[in-house]
Nucleic acid binder design. Structure first.
Lengths: 243, 243
DNA sequence: GTGCTCTTGTGAACGCCGTTAACTACACCG
DNA sequence: CGGTGTAGTTAACGGCGTTCACAAGAGCAC
């Protein structure tokens, strides 16, 4: 298959070790502990050697983000496989709960990926910002595609969408269609209008808001148990989008 | 008034300078740039001197958070004064827009105050976590109080609230009542039920989610202009809570 | 096999950081 | 005046990202 020289295999292996160590430092001690020197120390090499693999600490962190995101996607996909193909609402609930569970279990990673100020100018290197969210977004959107393919109507009519948003939302809709058909589900444009894209956006806003508030402890009052709160929000959310 | 010795006045002045410098470093170069050495450098003193005022860098950051929060509250209150006393919905809109504007203009401060993992054990020192959000929460809740006092019904009936949430929400409701009556508005418990508190919580979730997503650039698609998106969300939000 | 090149690593160094400790200068108080 | 406490100093420790010059060795052409 991959006819790689020994050098290339060695390099790839070392790279894996680096990211693995970085990851475990992140999980155990937070983003501030992801230190070139610490990583090198754990690997039994010296810090400057890492520069053979990443151009800077920030570069390494960027790749770490991608890893984290991919793992989240895998975890969500895993939880999904236990459900019946036809249980679309259940799949939506499972993905949402999985996202929350992951965020609470890995607040450091959550902060790194979903709550770090986006570098302003960075939009050209498609790999980073775009690809990262693809690996997570894809699973999310695939579930959405299944729901839509089942003919379950998402409530908001297209004409309710403010005109200024139509252009952006149309792009979003097209991307959704692409992702969904790629995953093997057949879906016509009539089933996925701009209004639907708008509702999905709102869905994401509320889910993200709830999870982020919980992770950051920014509810306006002390919450004794956040899980029922989340479940209640999720129930409302599913109802509001008409599932 | 405040009969302070010269020493005390000097100390207070230096403290103000420290926080001011810390603040401008935060604004200009982000949280990572808020460095004891950098602050001291700008003030023409040496770094260890700062330990006469704060026990550690983290301690200073904590007070910085409070400052930031107080300024946000002041800014929101300022924007409010231009409106007619009776325009309650307008006040709500103004506060929401002000919050977004502030968050976008000060992403570093926003991150520091609203999107930093809450230190797990820290709940005893009421001054920090609690007082901080008070200074901001008060303005938010005062507006809510005015709306409620005007007899505008918030839609959710109490009996729709899941039972497990009632206890927490009741505490929230009581705190709301206290804050509101403190600000001079007379309000009976019949106008502020648990259902109302629940709706206000949802309001906060959606507002926070939208703003945080915008600040962190985590919308699921490229947004050419986020302001109409925010306005649209705000319209929906105000409609959904029945204003 | 010999020699060349390119890759991967090392060690030393620079300048930053938070923090501690010992010490100085000086304002305040009796 | 002398004593006390405060606000500042300097020096130092260990850790950080990063750069640079250099060594060891794999891979390859001849």
């Amino acid at each position: 298959m991959t006819q790689a020289t020994r050098r290339e295999r060695d390099r790839a292996a070392t790279d894996r070790e680096i990211r693995q160590q970085a990851r475990s430092l992140l999980v155990d001690d937070g983003p501030a502990a992801v230190t070139l020197r610490a990583i090198a120390r754990e690997l039994g090499i010296t810090a400057p050697a890492l520069y053979r693999y990443y151009s800077s600490r920030e570069d390494l962190i960027e790749h770490l983000r991608a890893d984290v995101c991919a793992d989240l996607a895998a975890e969500l996909a895993g939880g999904l496989s236990a459900l019946a193909e036809t249980d679309h609402v259940g799949q939506v609930l499972t993905v949402c709960r999985g996202f929350r569970r992951w965020a609470l279990a890995h607040p450091q990673e959550f902060t790194l990926v979903f709550a770090s100020p986006s570098p302003p100018g960075v939009h050209c290197p498609v790999s980073a910002q775009e690809q990262v969210r693809d690996s997570f977004g894809r699973i999310f959107l695939t579930v959405a595609g299944r729901v839509l393919a089942n003919g379950l109507p998402i409530t908001r009519p297209d004409h309710d969408v403010p005109e200024v948003l139509v252009a952006d939302l149309t792009h979003f809709r097209d991307e959704l269609l692409l992702t969904i058909t790629e995953s093997g589900v057949d879906l016509g444009a009539d089933q996925l209008g701009v209004g639907t894209a708008y509702v999905m956006l709102q869905f994401w806003v509320r889910l993200y808001g709830q999870v982020a508030l919980e992770v950051f402890g920014q509810f306006p009052f002390p919450v004794s148990d956040a899980e029922p709160l989340f479940e209640s929000m999720l129930t409302d959310l599913v109802r509001d989008v008409g599932l």
